[in-house]
Amino acid sequence: MTSALLGPPADIAGEASTGRPPRRRRTAGPRNTLTPGAGLGLGLAMLWFSLLVLIPLTAIIVTAGEGGWSSYVDVLASDQTWAAVKLTVTQALIVTVVNVVVGTTIAWVLVRDRFWGKSVLDVIIDVPFALPTIVAGLVLLSLYGPQSPLGLEWANTERAVMLALAFVTLPFIVRTVQPVLEELDHDVEEAAASLGATRGTIVRRIILPSLAPAIAAGAALSFARAISEYGSLVLLSGNLPFRTEVVSVRVLSFIENGNTQSAAALASVMLAVALFVIVALDIVQRRVANRG
């Protein structure tokens, strides 16, 4: 192929020059692009963020540090606390993984398929999220508690924790993935098919990378909600130490016993866990999104 024969069209010649931006005259003055209005907005955002997030979080870390490093370690060295952390994080991770698969599938079905009752399902998806959590707990208790009409007596077991977490976190991934899937161009899949890509390859290399940011965002929400859940699981799980006691219950019992410092120490650990998972999810998402 002798591309030299083909003179570039005029628009290409024009575009080529955009590779090197034209030299701009340097403007004197501050290198700040904020207009007065934007400055005010930024200030307001920072104030609000500080009041609601930064100051309380700092207070927790300060309280946790008051007794020094040894008391900090003591709290975590307690077997009961450690069991609660392990249970909470494990169940939250399991539920998040389940949600990634099930949530994406539900979103797919809602966007791509047509069936009777679809619009009803679309509305009902939000119910677990909208319901007051203690009501959700009551629902679960009546279904899976003693004398379960389903014959599934899962009260006071780890399953109860997972069930409650799965119930309240269901909508997150569905709702983050759904709009992205709706926006996905059908042309793109057809283009890949005509280039020889099988259905599996199209899903793996075209669709999933496009959905990855949405799935990761939903997973982060789902995980964050799961490690902090309280209301929906207290009734069904029974809060048995070493078996079904989650971190939020443990923190509450610390506070009820007047041990604010231990509560803060445990809270700071969960903060670190949440940060770690959110960053890890972001890294995974970037990997997947660039995989194409």
Binding site: D185, D187, V188, E190, A191, A192, A193, S194, L195, G196, A197, T198, I206, P209, S210, A289, N290, G292
Partner: peptide, 17 residues
């Protein structure tokens, strides 16, 4: 996939990522 045709769409159908 099996026809060995190249297809170009009106709205480009680029792989955005």
């Amino acid at each position: 996939q099996k026809r060995n045709v190249g297809f170009v769409f009106q709205h480009y159908a680029v792989f955005k990522h």
